[in-house]
Design a protein around this nucleic acid. Sequence first.
DNA 1: ATAGGTGCAAATTCTTTGCACTGTC
DNA 2: GACAGTGCAAAGAATTTGCACCTAT
Lengths: 156, 156
Amino acid sequence: MLTTEQIIDAMSEHGLRITDQRKTLAKLFGEHPGYLTAKDVYEYMGRKYSGLSFDTVYRNLRVLYELGVLEQVVFEEGVKFRGRCSEEHHHHHMICLQCQKTYPITFCPMQLTDAPDDFQVVQHKFEVFGYCRDCGKDNNDQETSQAGGGHRDSRA
Amino acid sequence: MLTTEQIIDAMSEHGLRITDQRKTLAKLFGEHPGYLTAKDVYEYMGRKYSGLSFDTVYRNLRVLYELGVLEQVVFEEGVKFRGRCSEEHHHHHMICLQCQKTYPITFCPMQLTDAPDDFQVVQHKFEVFGYCRDCGKDNNDQETSQAGGGHRDSRA
DNA sequence: ATAGGTGCAAATTCTTTGCACTGTC
DNA sequence: GACAGTGCAAAGAATTTGCACCTAT
């Protein structure tokens, strides 16, 4: 994952100004390995900037996304962001339903999926959801998790 | 895919009343093989019921989803619905970015993904996006498609 | 100094909810 | 006839936009 400094450098290089808010944002994504919603970000940053407004958060998230610094993923519960993986090679993710941390899967199913000749593949999505070691169901069976709760199994 | 009648029967069996709107909804999903947004549904049904309100559409979509009659998929552009596949066995989909039709992929990458022992897999998602034969990019390069347009490649 | 960034307020879009009326069973 | 389903209006969430002020470069 990109470090706080790499994120700031990326902004600098693209002519963006390094404001306090952006430093904090860089720090957040540089240090937090999981996915965050705009709200999460707002709440985190709001602790430091009392007058913070939501639109600033949204604007900066979008800017960082367009810079390629952040990944944006649409979950059932909504859009979330995380720092881009620094690994260069193509990979997928296992995503913990509890803590939202992600773990890389190097295996890519596309190699093995023989798309019929008449289907032009543009993009693919392969995501595995579950509970990581730290969050293993055994530890906490309660339906407390805000994220893992209402999931429907999307298998066909 | 489920037929119009199967959808209606499913509603009946669950004690739901078969109103005109629901008949039309069943017909729509029984005959339309692709994904539809709530708005698509509203517009389709609105042609028949002038006084139709959005909340009725939402309510019925949710009811049908909870019945397991509809599948709900979150796209970059938002939530979409389609009739559930009648094929019993587990499979995945190739989804045409132009016409939104889906084609089954019998291959499931989970068999080959060795999740580390400490990750408890709950669910997975494998979706391939592209252009089907009928919509092959060659035929129409224009950026007209309302759905396929602004896609960003979500590969990591 | 000046262009880009921020906060504020308001607009948009998508979705849900409360309530009285209507139609299905 | 009862009660689920509908339309309407309004409330909420999530996100975007216009504008005047502020601040990094």
